[in-house]
């Protein structure tokens, strides 16, 4: 990062760089593009699961329906957790931009807490459903429900593991360019999961309780 600053403060250097980059249209930062492509392929996995749920979501097999099972206030709370974790991750990115390591770690920690809160609420919901006899083997509706929401939950779990790992790396190596890149990738991943959750709460929960 110090290298960039040196380049930009030298006036002739900055001029040269500008004209160079105007001509150069090849993506400079390959890992961000690569990570974006991974997210897009992940999007296709979720599309398949959403399509499965769309087809099977009303096949109750005389079992409980979505309207009978879903606890909307709990889902709203879960949504709030994920949304709050999105904005706190944004604050972590802003703190990193200001080169404040302590503040970055603090906001990452808060993001992690919200992530764990989301996972706990989801685990509680799943265990409650299974306890009520509405496990994944009860009906096609519940199989597709657990597959879709469970896959999203697993993604959040891995996001939290990644986040904790990154916090240790930040603590050890500081705000290096490598860690900056990792922060960017996790940022994409984390906000992407929030986007998927929009689909989940709309399509599965809100539309699931409609008659």
């Amino acid at each position: 990062m110090s290298e960039t600053i040196v380049h930009n403060t030298g006036a002739p250097g900055a001029e040269e760089r500008r004209s160079y980059f105007v001509r150069e249209h090849h993506p400079e930062n390959g890992s961000m593009l690569g990570f974006w492509l991974y997210l897009m392929s992940d999007c296709l996995i979720f599309a398949c699961l959403f399509a499965t749920y769309a087809v099977l979501g009303r096949n109750y097999a005389d079992g409980p329906t979505g309207a009978a099972l879903f606890d909307l206030p709990l889902v709203a709370l879960n949504t709030a957790m994920l949304l709050l974790s999105s904005i706190t991750y944004g604050f972590a990115m802003l703190a990193m931009q200001r080169k404040q390591l302590g503040s970055t770690l603090l906001w990452l920690g808060i993001t992690g807490v919200f992530g764990v809160a989301f996972l706990s609420l989801e685990m509680y919901e799943f265990l409650h459903l299974i306890h009520e006899g509405a496990g994944p083997q009860r009906s096609a509706f519940l199989s597709s429900f657990f597959a879709l929401v469970g896959t999203h939950g697993l993604h959040v779990l891995f996001g939290v593991i990644w986040l904790v790992t990154l916090m240790f790396q930040l603590k050890k190596h500081g705000l290096t360019p490598e860690n900056g890149r990792r922060m960017m990738c996790l940022s994409l991943f984390w906000h992407f999961l929030d986007v998927i959750w929009i689909g989940v709460f709309t399509f599965v929960y809100l539309m699931g309780v409609l008659p």
Binding site: M1, E3, T4, R17, F21, E28, N29, M32, P177, G180
Partner: peptide, 9 residues
């Protein structure tokens, strides 16, 4: 983007 690093993103 105008930098090798992402801080310019």
């Amino acid at each position: 983007h105008d930098s090798h690093y992402h801080d310019a993103h």
